[in-house]
């Protein structure tokens, strides 16, 4: 009996290891490509990027492992820093929403936003991944010192297409909670990262 079980265990282990060995490099390339695509999407002129880690209170340190990083410094064709792609996540209507947004330090503005992961209600909350909603986040000017000086939320959620300022985000009809979740996640992330980025841009460049 034990011999059979051990035998089956060996067969199973062999199958898993074989499949893993074959697929692991492909999966790694897939993940890398997905990350690259997302970063190029949120910060248009990016030609290369490198991942950073927060060390201590406000020091950024370069890391080699892309997977676990929250912030990526993005460089243009001349290898000069144009901005950061920052990952942020928080609670949505049903599950965690993971976002990636690009912040340009040249124009001191949010350049774009993509949703990396969300399980919002299909047809309603899932519209946070739609072009119409994400276009709200193209070109929002937020000064690097804005957070410290104003002590207010950088972005504001509004309804019924009454947008008068780029910092106002139009809520999706019927999905106010999901829309608000995105704005809240972004506000929290901006308040956290912008002061750090403001201090850090010199050594990284």
């Amino acid at each position: 009996m034990y011999r059979t079980l051990v035998g089956i265990g060996l067969i199973c282990a062999l199958v898993i290891v074989t499949v893993f060995e074959v697929t692991f490099p492909i999966i790694k390339v897939n993940k890398q490509r997905a990350l690259e695509n997302a970063i190029y999407q949120v910060l248009a002129n990016t030609k290369s990027f490198s991942a950073y880690h927060l060390v201590g209170n406000n020091n950024l340190q370069k890391v080699t492992d892309n997977d676990t990083s929250d912030i990526y410094a993005c460089y243009d064709a001349n290898h000069s820093l144009i901005g950061f792609a920052i990952a942020a996540q928080g609670m949505g209507y049903q599950d965690t929403i993971a976002l990636l947004y690009g912040y340009s330090i040249r124009s001191e503005s949010i350049q774009g936003l993509v949703v990396l992961q969300s399980r919002e209600t299909p047809g309603l909350g899932s519209k946070i991944e739609s072009r119409a909603f994400l276009d709200n986040f193209n070109n929002i000017e937020i000064g690097l010192d804005a957070i410290d000086n104003e002590r207010q939320q950088p972005l504001e959620l509004i309804k019924n297409n009454s947008k008068t300022h780029t910092r106002q985000i139009d809520a999706i009809t019927g999905a106010t909670i999901s829309s608000r979740a995105v704005v809240v996640i972004l506000n929290r992330s901006l308040s956290f990262w912008l002061p750090i980025v403001a201090k850090q841009q010199e050594p990284i460049t």
Partner: peptide
Amino acid sequence: QVRIASYVAIIATFVTAVDYIIQAVSL
């Protein structure tokens, strides 16, 4: 006596394999 246990091990193996394969084909 151990047939269910071995079936479950076999099934779990191929599910894990399928999981990796799908990730490799399309994230």
